[in-house]
Design a binder for these strands. Structure first.
Length: 276
DNA sequence: AACGATCCCTGTTGGC
DNA sequence: TGCCAACAGGGATCGT
């Protein structure tokens, strides 16, 4: 599934393709994909003729600043995939968006479940959008322990739910939240406000290594339907997961069977012995 | 304000 | 074998 690691992998692949390129054509192929723009027609109209000045990321959002002070936003949702192909390349099933550059590349969003979207915002629109509510990026702007502890203070929601809340920290999704909590030795169901400073410190120190290990392996491809690298390869992190999807299998640290529970409406995997 | 539940989507899976 | 309900989940929205 596309979480921070997968989006960052896509960003790194897109940067040399898009940075400095001019968009020569754009088309939204499915109305739902443009739903985040107040005027859906703006997406294609605003893109054509613009130059991409940077390829950035905040949490799970891919952010491409354009000239004319516009911001091109791509979110992969849960089944979105960005492909870089030649314009003659056959259009894959579930292609929701296409754009061409003056360098002869075509950038497409293939997204069967249409949870992803493409938007082009003015600065004012960006400020009104959910982008403005995102917390600090979990990889590039991880807050110091005391600040993170302050954020969690008094919160009664399970720490797993808080890690999934993009306003608390931007980028973690269901897979990496479970992996981080296992590495930190924290029970996903504990209330955020119950964590003491030592817990928060372990939590904070677990985030970067888990994300960086994911990045080294090209992210997590659960199956060939969902996330793939832009060149079509599958990410290899699936085989390195310690808890996610491993119900009843032995904990790789202590051998206790991994359990599955539902937290915040999401499958949550943990070791009942290592995580307290 | 915080929190849990529900909904949006469609390909895949598992039970009968 | 075939059918269909259940499941997966990021984020918006709604009710409490």
């Amino acid at each position: 599934m596309p979480e921070l690691v997968e989006v960052e992998t896509v960003r790194r692949a897109l940067e040399p393709v898009l940075h400095g390129a001019r968009i020569t054509a754009a088309a939204v192929m499915h109305p739902r994909t443009a739903r985040r723009n107040e005027r859906p027609d703006d997406v294609a109209e605003r893109l054509v003729g613009r130059r991409v000045t940077a390829v950035d990321r905040h949490g799970k959002f891919l952010l491409c600043p354009l000239d004319e002070d516009l911001l091109w936003v791509i979110h992969l949702g849960m089944s979105g995939r960005v492909t870089v192909v030649s314009p003659e390349s056959p259009v894959e099933r579930h292609t929701r968006f296409r754009s061409a550059t003056d360098r002869g590349d075509e950038i497409r969003l293939v997204d069967p479940r249409t949870f992803g979207f493409v938007a082009v915002f003015t600065p004012e629109e960006a400020k009104r959008s959910s982008l403005a509510k995102l917390g600090p990026d979990a990889l590039t702007a991880l807050p110091p322990t005391r600040l993170l502890a302050r954020t969690l203070e008094g919160r009664r929601a399970p720490i797993k739910a808080l890690l999934l809340d993009q306003r608390v920290l931007a980028g973690l999704g269901n897979i990496y939240a479970d992996e981080v909590l296992h590495r930190a030795g924290i029970d996903p169901l504990r209330a955020g406000g119950d964590l003491d400073v030592a817990d928060v410190e372990r939590l904070r120190r677990s985030i970067r290594p888990v994300l960086e290990e994911g990045l080294r392996h090209g992210g997590t491809s659960l199956d060939d339907l969902a996330y793939l690298l832009p060149d079509g390869r599958a990410g290899e992190f699936l085989t390195r997961l310690r808890v996610y999807g491993r119900e009843d299998q032995p904990c790789l640290r202590c051998g206790t069977p991994i359990i599955r529970r539902v937290v915040a409406g999401r499958s949550t995997y943990s070791c009942p012995s290592c995580q307290r």
